[in-house]
Amino acid sequence: MMAKPYFRTVYDVPREEYLAPGHGLCAGCTAGTIVKLLLKVAGPNTIVVNATGCVEVSTTPFPYTSWKVPWIHVAFENTAAVASGIESALKALKAKGMIDPAKRINIIALAGDGGTYDIGFQALSGMLERGHKVMYVLYDNEAYMNTGIQRSGGTPEYAWTTTTPVGKILKGKVQQKKPIAEIVAAHRIPYVATANPGYFADMMNKFKKGLEVEGPSFVHVLQPCTTGWKFDPRYGIVLARLATETALWINWQQEEGQFSVTVSVPRRKHVKHYFELQGRFSHLTEEDIEKIQKEVDLEVDRINKLVGRTVIGPLVE
C-alpha cells in the first residue's frame, strides 16, 4: 500500500512563494504554475539549474530575476551536467567541512523538452548513470517554444509546428513522441514520474518524492503552452486535465522499480475533446482522430495489463 500522500488538498500547500511575479512568461503559461508549485515543495534550501528556454529567458531578463532561490543558467544542453557538478561539489565541500555536512540542499535541474529529449539527452543520461542526487524536472510543452515553436522529439504525431507545417503532402509532425520517461526509467534510477499541473497535489507529491529519494529522480510534467498549441490562455489547466482524462497523458510513477498509475481515470473521454481546443491540431480529419484514438486504446490496454487491473477505464464520452 502506498504511504499517505503529503499534499492532499490546497490547504496543505505552503503559502510562501519562491517565484516572484513580474516575469515575462506569456499570459496563461502553465510553466509559471508548475515552477511556482515546484518551488513551494522545494523551499528555500534549493539550487535550481535551468536550461535555456522559455522559463529561463522569461524569468531572468537582467537586472531582474523572479527567483528567490539560488539559480543558474549555463547553456541549453548541459543542465544535467551542471547539476552533477553542483551536487559533487557540495559533497566535496561538506566532506572538507567547508559547508555544514548536516545541511540538505535540494538540487533541481529544470529543462524543456528540447533541452531534454533532444540536445540535453546525453548529459541527462550521464547524470542518471552516475547517480547524482538531483531531481530533474522536464517541463514538456512539446516543442522548442523559445525559438518560435519548432518540433522536438517531444512533439506529438500530427502536431503543427513551424518546422512541421501543414502542407499539401505533409500534415504536421510525422513521427511519434519519444517515450522519454520510460527511457529514463530504463536507467533504473530510484524515482521516475509523469505529472501534470491539472492534478496539482499529485504533481507536488511527485516533486516531494523526487527530492527525498537518495539518487537521481526525474519528473516529467506536461506543460500546456497557449502560444505554441494555439489555445485560449484560459484553458491551460483544462487542457492539462483533458490530456489525462483522454489518457493521452497518463500520470504514473516508478518508485524503486515499482510502477503505478497515480491518477486513475474511471471514465475515459474521447481524444477529440483534447484536440478540439488546440489550433495545432485543427487540420486533423475525423479519420486521423480515430486513428489516434485507436492508438490510445491500445496504450490504455498495455498500461492496465502492466498494473494488473483497470486503472484507466473505458471510453465513455
Binding site: 548541459n78 551536467a81 551542471v82 557538478g85 553542483i86 557540495l90
Partner: peptide
C-alpha cells in the same frame, strides 16, 4: 562538454 559544464556547476558553488 559535460566536463566543462560540471566544472562550471562545481565552481559556481
Amino acid at each position: 562538454h559535460s566536463a566543462m559544464s560540471a566544472a562550471i556547476g562545481a565552481s559556481a558553488v
